[in-house]
Design a protein around this nucleic acid. Structure first.
Lengths: 176, 176
DNA sequence: TTTTACTTGTGATAATTGTCACAAAAACTT
DNA sequence: AAGTTTTTGTGACAATTATCACAAGTAAAA
């Protein structure tokens, strides 16, 4: 994946804040300003928005991956979504301002940050294309073959909104 | 938007390659390796993939915006999509290697590059969420109020695949 | 282990969307 | 301007999906 030297990694984790959450605890709530980038060490985070009382999952972040609310982070605007622990979850939080300082000191770290963004963007593009190319049924089958991990860890009812499918429909798709 | 000093902008455009395309000409074809980032000066670019003989539009890039195939660009792998001029289009192309050199010389330009990525990622996330939150009909209405420009410039048949809707359905939605 | 809460399965039905075929309209060509 | 190509509209119908209501199953808690 994205490589980085041991010394830069050390500098990065010097500014990191290790935190632990129980299942259901919130890392970010709507209205708050997101000030950190989170790295999941263990467990997973669920990102969702509330639409008329229904929760719609927009992302799941598993071990070894980063997440944040980029829009809120960039403009210091209030978030419109929630980030919640899906299990007992350990994360490292990187404060935005400290991160920007590090970028000024270390070109390697800035470059690492950029590569991370690139990865996230590519993944997001692929995810969007799922909806354009495939039907609900095909989307499920795509996950089955390309991202089986997510099927193992995320419950059917949580997955359905992530795939833009009604829970009942997903249940029926799965039966076959 | 994303700010940059005049001197950095100058350096950027020193490495730029201005090119003009007629409607329908290809900037990138499947199998090719994407080696540049493109800035649209005039006209627009259509990004699409071929699914069993049908073209599915994944993106439209208008004046003042950047596009590329990030996956191909990053890993020097062959592209699975096409980028085509939707009208007479003038672009500035930035060679990846030259850009990386500039990043090493100018922190401001690297930071500019990062901010650009951030913008693209935020936009992409919002686009994905359209599919999770809204029905086809609602997606169209969302564009109507939030991105009317795209409706003015993109034909119905091109737009339908971008919204994940059948052409006929989109035609009927629009009637109301 | 018994109760309670949450998740999943399922039937019935409505609503929406997709598909096919073709006509109408609009946009380009020559 | 006439002809050609491309885009859009529409009807008819099939297929898929959403919604509602509730039963069954599973997991968590007491």
């Amino acid at each position: 994946m994205t490589e980085i030297s041991v010394s830069s990694l050390g500098k990065l984790f010097e500014i990191a804040n290790k935190r632990q959450f129980k299942k259901g605890e919130f890392i970010l709530k709507p209205g708050q300003v997101c000030k950190t980038i989170m790295f999941v060490e263990e467990g997973y985070l669920r990102t969702f928005i509330d639409k008329d009382g229904t929760e719609i999952n927009t992302d799941f972040t598993f071990e070894g991956n980063f997440t944040t609310n980029l829009k809120s982070l960039r403009s210091a605007s209030s978030a419109d979504n929630s980030i919640q622990a899906g299990e007992i979850t350990i994360i490292y939080e990187f404060d935005k301002d400290k991160l920007l300082e590090l970028y000024n000191v270390s070109a390697e770290i800035e470059s690492f940050g950029r590569k991370l963004l690139e990865q996230l963007l590519i993944a997001q593009e692929e995810h969007t294309n799922l909806f354009k190319i495939y039907s609900p049924t095909e989307r499920y089958h795509y996950l089955q073959t390309n991202k089986p991990k997510i099927l193992q860890r995320i419950s059917l009812s949580q997955l359905s909104s992530y795939l833009g499918i009604a829970r009942e429909t997903l249940s029926r798709i799965r039966k076959k």
